[in-house]
Design a protein around this nucleic acid. Sequence first.
DNA 1: GCAAAAGTGTTGTGTCTACACCCATGT
DNA 2: ACATGGGTGTAGACACAACACTTTTGC
Lengths: 230, 230
Amino acid sequence: MDRKPRVEPTTHEQETVAVVLQVRDAALQVLLWRRAKAPFAGRWALPGGALGAETLERSIRRHLAAKVDVRELTHLEQLETRADPRGARVTTAYLGLVRTGLDPEVPDDTAWHPVDRLPATAFDHGAFARSGRDRLRAKLSYTNLGFALAPETFTISELRELYATALGHEVSATNLQRVLLRRGVLVSTGDRRPSGRTGGRPAEVFRFRASGLEITDQFAVLRPPGRETD
Amino acid sequence: MDRKPRVEPTTHEQETVAVVLQVRDAALQVLLWRRAKAPFAGRWALPGGALGAETLERSIRRHLAAKVDVRELTHLEQLETRADPRGARVTTAYLGLVRTGLDPEVPDDTAWHPVDRLPATAFDHGAFARSGRDRLRAKLSYTNLGFALAPETFTISELRELYATALGHEVSATNLQRVLLRRGVLVSTGDRRPSGRTGGRPAEVFRFRASGLEITDQFAVLRPPGRETD
DNA sequence: GCAAAAGTGTTGTGTCTACACCCATGT
DNA sequence: ACATGGGTGTAGACACAACACTTTTGC
């Protein structure tokens, strides 16, 4: 039990990458960058790069600044860290979100790809992308994370379409409105959106109450006795 | 937007540490190790060490082998990775769980500490420990993770006490049994535990149906229409 | 019989889905 | 008037907490 297996000291290349997601063209898409150099020359990869004298979050923000204007990133959280089997390359992945409707200028070697139909990727970046997608889908259900995908203001049917696209299945406008209002996630702006040429009742305009991540469904079934869920 | 801030290339020390938790002596405790060398000589730290030519999970398992018999680790998952502000030391933390009742032999410089009353720790290991504790508490509510804390078989009141200790608040035996049986997390072994000298009805003996992590409460409030929760 | 411990029955509350219905607008 | 899209009312299913009650044992 005290015997230490021999493990040669190795040098590690530490890098940060980001799964940047946005709803665009009726699909949930991820920002990928086409590698010029080996290994995996020509394959698509997540944006990112080497860690410098900085924290991980500053590193990924710095690397993303070359691809997306940082002010357009409405959410950023750490996903997962992996090392290849030889421990030579250590990669920390982040999840970043961009509001729908924005169209950040991106370099020529960079493009958006539907996250449900990814091309062949460099390294295991496809796995990171799927993991980011799944994290987003889970958090849309029990947090207010929709704020990071939606424009500042919107109608319920616009939001319904956004959620349906991000989640990958249909969502009922009725129930979406009920759930988000009951939880206090949405508030009315008081404005209405005029109806189009085909008529119809003008839609109420809403916004997210908060623009930071909040857990809105406490799912803690074994909670302390007596007190409210608060 | 194409301007790259100058960031000197730096070398990084990559290490893995683990928040190993166990319910012992009526408290949720974490395994800490007293540092001999600077920095933070004499302070308590999480077990772990440098990454070698290996994946992160193999690295933390290798380092833990010197402290705890690996077969006694019933669960291991990655928590979070942090770098210090100068990016010199990159630390990936794991959460490990040990069944209650076991008493692994640990080296002299290693001891269990109640996770709710931590001593001063080296680096930001106290934050990792609290983050592991919070992750455990959350997952006890919506997964079958109790399997990793509980003995092979147990009565409901033993399990009630275990959950209450791990969660840090009282838990009702009645409702605990209802919830876990309804979700199919627990199954009866058919055995009964004879009552003690003070009498009382013999308790039924249960076990966890699965011994791998499963999500048992789907908390996905915006789920696909029509189909069952499955 | 009585105390102790385990387990079940039952009621009330809140959340969520589904669907019917009403509302406000353009043509 | 009527089609269209937006919003509300309501009933049923379900999960959960709380607590009363029954069951099975030791003394």
